[in-house]
Design a protein around this nucleic acid. Structure first.
Lengths: 253, 253
DNA sequence: GAGTCTGTAG
DNA sequence: CTACAGACTC
């Protein structure tokens, strides 16, 4: 089973890129973040024509998540329990016996800001939700845009990013607590320890051309799922009108 | 000598179309309207690379006129005498002994509006300017977007447009007074009397596809200039991302 | 309907 | 730098 996660930064603009990905990577489950589309504008037909099922939780200009799946999407939920919020940032569904949780973690803007506090509260609620889901689902995946670079290894220039958003000790602590629930960071697990790999490059300052990336998109697997291969398809960041994120893929058994 | 006038509705967006026109129509003088560019963003190099001289009077979001010429642009002026106005709507220059006046006449919004009154005042000032220039220049051209359809013949549906902006008796009277100074409407002169031809089609309601056009862009020639041929190149209205106007061309001797 | 600006977000 | 909304103009 191939899992792919991609922050598309507007599905409206990126639909051709996503269709290209379906043809190239043949995902069984594709988790999208930042669709930026209200539900009545979601391009379901594009996916259904290709034999996929779709589920989405969208809003107008911001956020928005979707699941595209070759198999039925069951027990769908689009919120974090006990976290009252209009922002569409989570979408969970069961696919072929695997519980999939698609997340678009808040960016946080900068440490000390109200948005950073919101990010922390959101992650608290996510931790509780994932812990709860793990108690019910042996086979479980949390994937998406976490807006957290788990270690200095995941940042092109750790000194420059120290204590910056996505790299603070507090955010990394949240990421560790997530793994401590019994999850494995598939890409990090699969690649050699000294191999740097990034999933996001700022649009500004020609960050991609200069190799200024961060690894902030992740696929986390419960221990009963075996990883066969994993990677990041950087070619999508090099295309015309690209998203600022590249898709992450994992083959599981 | 080939003269071309085109309202490009943003030179920023339409530069590729304009370059295409230079290669296809080989104008000696190209008058552009609605460049919508401040002078520090005018793409002079694109024209100079091809051996043209440029002169422009631009502003930020609205209006803006330019002259692109194979021959030197002399005695340039970018205002109407006695008409104090920040809007960049006129650019006059002498090219190879021919006085060229490039105009972007105000649209006027709707009759009775303050903008219509402005259009009339602007046309008063234009009449005085052209009369004055004619006394000094035997060979003279006034070309541009006049925002006036001179006769019912120049409107796809005269009944529907009666007393609408661009078709009011008052605006047509201004146009007649301009001709009465000693100018000839080159395209009307050159084409058979019963031949309809348009230069502008609204972006809305698929006006171009339906043939709902108006002839509001004109090239007016003093009587000492002989017309050899004239026309409207409608193909530019059918291109991708078109301007809502098509270019008008006239060959003079 | 297409364009540009300002403002917001990442 | 890219994307969107909302206001403006034509």
């Amino acid at each position: 089973m191939r899992l792919v996660s991609w922050n598309v930064n507007s599905l409206n603009v990126r639909l051709p890129h996503v269709e290209h990905l379906l043809d190239k990577l043949h995902p069984d489950v594709l988790a999208l973040q930042e669709t930026k589309l209200p539900d009545d504008r979601f391009p379901s037909e594009a996916f259904e024509q290709r034999g996929f099922q779709v589920s989405f939780a969208g809003q107008k200009t911001y956020n928005g998540v979707a699941l595209i799946s070759r198999y039925p999407l069951e027990h769908v939920r689009a919120d974090l329990p006990g976290f009252n919020d209009a922002q569409r940032r989570v979408l969970a569904a069961t696919v072929a016996g695997v519980r999939i949780i698609n997340v678009y973690v808040p960016n946080g803007q900068e440490p000390d800001s109200e948005k950073f506090a919101y990010k922390c509260r959101w992650l608290d609620a996510l931790l509780a939700f994932v812990a709860d889901e793990l108690s019910a689902h042996d086979r479980l995946v949390v994937m998406g845009d976490f807006n957290i670079a788990p270690a200095d290894m995941d940042v092109h220039d750790a000194a420059r990013w120290r204590d910056k958003i996505m790299c603070t000790a507090l955010e990394r602590e949240y990421f560790r607590r997530l793994l401590a629930l019994g999850l494995v960071d598939a890409v990090r697990e699969q690649l050699p320890e000294d191999r740097t790999i990034y999933t996001w490059w700022d649009y500004r300052l020609s960050a991609f051309r200069r190799g200024w990336g961060l690894r902030i998109d992740h696929v986390l697997l419960s221990e009963s799922l075996r990883i066969r291969a994993a990677g990041v398809d950087v070619s999508y960041r090099a295309m015309d009108r690209p998203s600022d994120h590249a898709p992450v893929w994992v083959d599981v058994q």
